[in-house]
Amino acid sequence: MKYADEFRDPIAARAALDAIARVCDQIGATEENPVRIMEICGGHTHAIFRYGLDKLTHPGIEFIHGPGCPVCVLPMSRVDECVQLAEQPNVIFTTFGDAMRVPGTRKSLLQAKADGADIRMVYSPLDALELARRNPDKEVIFFGLGFETTTPSTALSIQQASREGLTNFTVFCNHITVPPPIKALLDDPYMKLDGFVGPGHVSMVIGTHPYDFIADDYGKPIVVAGFEPLDLLQSVLMVLEQIRDGKAVVQNQYARVVPEHGNPVSIAAIDDVYEQRPSFEWRGLGEIDHSGLRIRETYKAFDAEEKFGIGYATGTRSVQEPEGCECGAVMTGRMKPTQCPMFGKGCTPEMPLGALMVSSEGACAAYYQYGGARAVEAAE
């Protein structure tokens, strides 16, 4: 498969692993005193486990799984508000599939659908827009969820709805941005991180400069990475080489896809439609200043929070995690998924207790999927 096999070449991978081992030996990284590298993106977490990179790399490397999945960091209160919106009369509530099974305090969207709410899975906000056109007598709400990767498509849909003068289409905006939570983690005195593997898809939109503060202010190297095995191995090697050489800069391993200054069309759409919220709650991290986006006054007619009087428009509330669920600790790198007392017992992909087991990019789902019975045994 052209342009994929090249990044899965076992001979090249072996050479990269040998180079990683040499640099680990040079800097004195050991299993007892490892270099702690956080992969920010949940897609990277799954790639690491899918290809066994955690087993193949030098024992002096410890991968810390960051809060890089928007479904995983969504607080339960926002899930409750989704259900509340979906259960309104005359509403068609639309969402991406991986948000359907995330549990709230009362029920998930999937359970609400089973109870009679008109909830439909879509692949794009444009699908929701088409539903609004075809159902002028219904209120169509799109669950706007995701990092900078999905934010432009929602913004473009709102712009299109505005041009068409649609009055029955709104967005429940839960779009969030990557740099603020990284800063929150770096400011956490209990977090020990030596470097970062930066997100690839997010960086396609925003470029590499939003991460400058990681190197400039905190002295930590970060390498924006692709998703194939050799992408990740090369990125880890680049982080280690910076540590060895006493450097801390932003490097772009994924230059074949990620432009330095991002995608100007996407950035323009985001800036036109959204503004920063003063703060937004992240599951496991709490309220983080300027980390969420809300719809600007110009497009207020398409803001479900304003139209239906819900969420931050009326003062959203924080909700405690289910008893025994350690999603917050896993997302902040304080424990591995297998250390959660519910892992593989009260929380499985079939019956998830926490968002990290639900999401296709969740760390717990990765451990369960690729560790199988061994992961469950490790939890016992």
Rank of each mutant, 00 (worst) to 15 (best):
I295V: 09
D217N: 10
G246I: 05
S162E: 09
A215D: 04
Q84F: 09
D98C: 12
I48L: 13
V223D: 03
T154C: 15
V171W: 01
A269E: 06
K192F: 09
R294A: 06
D137R: 11
L126W: 05
E287N: 08
A363F: 03
A13S: 14
M76H: 13
D54P: 04
E306L: 04
R296Q: 00
G362S: 05
K336N: 10
V140K: 08
L232N: 01
A355F: 12
G165N: 00
R14V: 07
I267H: 06
V35G: 04
E87T: 08
G362E: 02
L145R: 06
V265L: 14
V73A: 10
L285A: 08
T151N: 01
T95H: 09
T94H: 03
V376I: 15
G97V: 11
L156A: 14
E260T: 15
I222K: 02
I64K: 12
A313Y: 10
L240N: 03
A112D: 03
F147H: 03
L56M: 14
T30V: 05
S77H: 14
I182N: 00
I222M: 06
E287W: 10
E81V: 07
A15N: 05
A29G: 13
G328P: 05
H44S: 01
D194F: 09
I182D: 00
P70A: 08
N33C: 12
T30R: 13
G246Y: 11
M100Q: 12
D271K: 15
T177P: 01
S108M: 03
G315M: 01
M331L: 15
R50W: 08
P259G: 00
D18W: 00
P70M: 10
D54G: 14
V257R: 09
L110V: 02
P352Y: 02
A255K: 15
F308L: 14
W282H: 05
F196C: 02
S359W: 08
L53S: 00
N135S: 07
V249Y: 13
L240Q: 03
A132N: 12
V178I: 14
D289I: 03
P337Y: 02
P70L: 08
L232Q: 00
T348F: 07
R334Y: 12
P322Y: 01
A363V: 15
S360N: 15
V236S: 01
Q369E: 11
V265H: 13
K138S: 06
T150Y: 11
D245P: 11
Q242C: 09
F196A: 02
A365E: 08
T57G: 00
S318E: 13
A378C: 00
G52R: 13
F343S: 11
